[in-house]
């Protein structure tokens, strides 16, 4: 391989390398921009989530839920009469829901 050929090959390699470097730099810059854009988007999304969480906390405040429950669902506070515990003795005066009454209700449903 004579000197000219070597020079040509080297020139070609240098040329290709420079183009490659240029393209690579362009790609890197493009990715960096994309990265920054994504970071900004993440920042904005996190900020939105943060605001929404605060909003959720306000909207689900007990006072508001109670108001909605009474207005929309006609809900009332739980009474001890609605609760039954298996540790209760039979026929506790405060609880109409003894085991016996549950059985009666079941029969009536059938």
């Amino acid at each position: 391989m004579n000197k000219l050929t070597i020079n040509l090959v080297l020139s070609f390699v240098a040329f290709i390398s420079s183009i490659g470097m240029y393209v690579l730099k362009g790609e890197v810059k493009s990715l960096e921009t994309e990265h920054l854009l994504l970071q900004r988007k993440i920042f904005q999304t996190k900020e939105e989530i943060h605001v929404l969480e605060a909003e959720k906390s306000y909207l689900s405040s007990p006072e508001r839920l109670k108001f909605l429950g009474e207005k929309v669902g006609a809900l009332q506070e739980t009474s001890v009469k609605q609760l039954y515990s298996f540790s209760l003795k039979k026929d506790e005066p405060f609880s109409p829901f003894t085991l016996a009454s549950f059985k009666t209700l079941k029969k009536e449903d059938e």
């Binding site: 810059k29 920054l36 900004r40 993440i42 996190k46 969480e53």
Partner: peptide, 23 residues
């Protein structure tokens, strides 16, 4: 091109939560 990196999302003060995580 955006050259300035946005800061990490962080409010000045942390949140105070109740026992169930409500803000």
């Amino acid at each position: 091109l955006i050259t300035k990196e946005p800061p990490a999302f962080m409010m000045q003060r942390g949140n105070i939560l109740d026992r169930n995580g409500v803000i």
